Simulated scan of single mutants.
Amino acid sequence: MNLVRRYLLHNGLSLGFGLIFLLALIGQAIAGHADFNNRLAAESAPQISFTDYVTSSDFAVDVAENWQSEYLQFFLYILLTIWLIQLGSPESKHPREVGLESDEQQSLGRHAGPSSPHWARVGGWRTVLFSWSLSLTMFGLFLFSWFAQSVAGHSSYNSEQLGQLEDPVGYGEYVASADFWNRTLQNWQSEFLAIGSMAVFSVYLRQRGSPESKPVGAAHATTEKTG
């Protein structure tokens, strides 16, 4: 097997989702541009080019508000599954493993193996940081995309205010506004519903061959066993 085929095989999931992401983003840009120009036409306003649209605050806020909700979802999911369980779900740990687990269970320090990451073996602050690196990264990406959404939303909102001959608002006023929180919470609630439904459905339903599902013949009460 040559190097290219091996790389594609070993990274198929990330590459596949990356391609789907790009196609969806391009589709959103095309549809959003058409919809935006339709609204401009209804107001007898001049239409804008595709380039102007994808570099506008209107497009940026639509993209960023979805990104921040996704990263928030995974940040909370990573943390909550440390202490909360769903008996029978492959998305959950077994009840006896609730909590941060011991160094031996986590292969840390003197319990690390020869192939363990260096920061898992050295101890001290580096091991602590590495132990929390996934949730910290997700939280950082959430904060970044949330801030991007707030800045783009503020700009878009003030553009609408000026178009309606009303005074623009300050950044702090916008972040406390109903418009901002309506955009934010409608994304949050959908993400929390989806991931909570997945945890429950996976107790009783199966998908043969998927690591997100238990083996088809596993008992409903079987927890933390993927198929």
Rank of each mutant, 00 (worst) to 15 (best):
F130K: 10
L134P: 00
Y71I: 01
Q86I: 11
G113C: 04
F144I: 04
H154K: 04
A60M: 12
G153H: 01
W188C: 02
Q186K: 14
A42H: 08
I26E: 06
N187T: 04
L193H: 10
V216Q: 06
V54P: 00
E173T: 08
Y53R: 03
I30G: 11
D62F: 06
H94A: 11
V128Y: 09
R206V: 07
Q105N: 11
L3P: 05
D167F: 09
I30K: 13
V4G: 06
P114L: 04
R126I: 05
S69K: 00
A218T: 06
G109P: 01
R121H: 05
I195W: 07
L134H: 11
I20T: 14
G209W: 03
L84V: 12
W119L: 13
A194K: 13
T81R: 05
V175G: 02
Y71A: 00
N66W: 03
A45D: 12
F201Y: 13
G196P: 02
S131L: 08
I26F: 13
H33V: 06
G172P: 01
K214P: 02
L143N: 05
N158C: 08
L8D: 09
Q189V: 15
A29L: 12
L129C: 09
S197I: 11
R6Q: 13
A148P: 00
E212Q: 09
N38K: 08
F180Q: 02
H220L: 14
L79W: 02
V122Y: 00
T137N: 10
S44Q: 15
A120V: 09
R183P: 00
A42R: 06
L40I: 11
H111R: 03
Q186Y: 11
R96V: 14
I195Q: 02
Q207M: 11
T137Q: 09
L165F: 11
L15C: 10
L165P: 02
A218D: 09
G140A: 12
L79Q: 06
W119A: 09
G172T: 01
E212P: 01
R206G: 05
E160A: 08
G12A: 15
Q164E: 13
S131W: 00
S44K: 15
G140V: 08
I20L: 15
I26L: 11
I85H: 01
M1Q: 12
Q68C: 01
N38R: 10
S14W: 14
A221F: 14
S89H: 01
L79M: 14
Q207W: 08
Q189M: 14
G27A: 10
L84N: 07
N182I: 04
L205S: 09
G12W: 14
T55R: 05
T51G: 11
L13V: 15
G16C: 13
W132D: 00
A221T: 15
G18T: 08
L9I: 12
S190T: 13
S107D: 10
Q68R: 03
Y171W: 13
T222A: 14
S177R: 07
R6Y: 04
L84T: 07
I30Q: 12
A60C: 10
Q47H: 07
G16D: 10
A221H: 15
E212T: 06
G209V: 07
R5F: 05
M138P: 00
S190D: 08
Y157A: 01
W188L: 07
T51Y: 08
G88Q: 03
G124Y: 04
S150F: 03
Q28L: 11
N158Q: 10
L9Q: 14
S135A: 15
S116Q: 08
W67H: 03
T184L: 05
A194T: 13
